[in-house]
């Protein structure tokens, strides 16, 4: 996988994988799939975004820098992807505006796959967000970024063990140099096509909370049969999430659940616009 680097200055004849990627900047009039890019702040999320789309977003070495949701496109193996860069957050449980934008896009925007960028040097902290995202969506790939920096610091990440534990692919990458990015993109393609079956890890909450969830989940499922993330919805309703309450009342959730069963309609659908001012 180390050979898969795609530094533009290098000759691409030696790396066949590079020929498969075409950066499309903001030309995204037609696209086949929508990919959400999520992750903690300061994990190299926008570096990956720029590397894939050819756009030049800047967020700096800063935790907590709010930027508007950025979108770009890339083409991989002839398939066009639209990449939506979500605000970097530590969690999805709070009421901050960034977290609402990220949370609502994952739920209502229904990306075909979510790439979760994690910092290999602080994996534990990043796993908090990863586990939360896996509650919302089972179509996800974890990109373990900054592997080079981790190596320098004497930290080795066993991505195979990580994949096993999380139930979704975990791919080591160095977004800055492009190392591993091709493998990441093919994992994304495999997950979307169903060639890779994901079985995301769901945590066990405290007995009291679990009991409350066990009561709510069947109620929600009866309203929105087939909803893949009924447990997350139940958790948010217990939290009193106003946006979800409204989605439940308006039938939006049932609509999402219905669309899950009609894959063809997903290709041409309009992306729900969330979190835009």
């Amino acid at each position: 996988m180390k050979n898969a680097a795609f530094v533009p200055s290098e000759s691409c004849a030696t790396c066949p994988a590079f020929a498969q990627l075409e950066r499309m900047g903001i030309k995204m009039d037609r696209f086949d799939h929508v990919i959400a890019l999520a992750g903690n702040p300061n994990t190299g999320k926008s570096t990956l975004f720029n590397a894939l789309t050819g756009l030049k977003q800047h967020t700096g070495n800063w935790p907590g820098k709010t930027v508007r949701r950025a979108e770009g496109g890339y083409q991989f193996n002839g398939v066009r992807y639209k990449l939506v860069d979500l605000p970097g957050t530590y969690s999805l449980l709070s009421t901050s505006q960034d977290e609402e934008v990220a949370r609502n896009f994952l739920l209502f925007g229904q990306p075909d796959c979510t790439v979760i960028v994690a910092d290999a040097t602080a994996l534990e902290r990043n796993l908090n967000l990863i586990l939360q995202i896996l509650e919302i969506t089972d179509k996800a790939v974890v990109a373990v970024n900054l592997i080079d920096e981790a190596r320098r610091k004497g930290i080795e990440v066993d991505t195979r063990a990580l994949s096993c534990d999380l139930g979704v692919p975990a791919v080591p990458i160095v977004a800055r140099t492009g190392e591993g990015v091709m493998a990441l993109l093919s994992s994304v393609a495999d997950v979307i096509a169903g060639r890779l079956q994901t079985q995301p890890r769901r945590v066990c909450y405290t007995p009291q909370l679990q009991a409350a969830l066990d009561e709510l989940v069947p109620l929600i499922e009866s309203l929105a049969p087939g909803l893949p993330n009924a447990r997350w919805v139940a958790l948010r309703l217990l939290d009193g999430d106003a946006r979800l309450q409204q989605a439940l009342l308006s039938g939006e959730l049932a609509e999402i659940a219905r669309r899950q069963h009609v894959p063809e309609s997903r290709l041409s659908r309009q992306i729900a616009v969330v979190g835009q001012q």
Partner: peptide, 20 residues
């Protein structure tokens, strides 16, 4: 309790996957 559960799980997974 939710945050605590999530981080406890994160910590377990990280212990298996990260070698320093």
């Amino acid at each position: 309790a939710i945050a605590q559960t999530l981080y406890a799980e994160a910590s377990r997974i990280a212990r298996r996957a990260v070698h320093t």
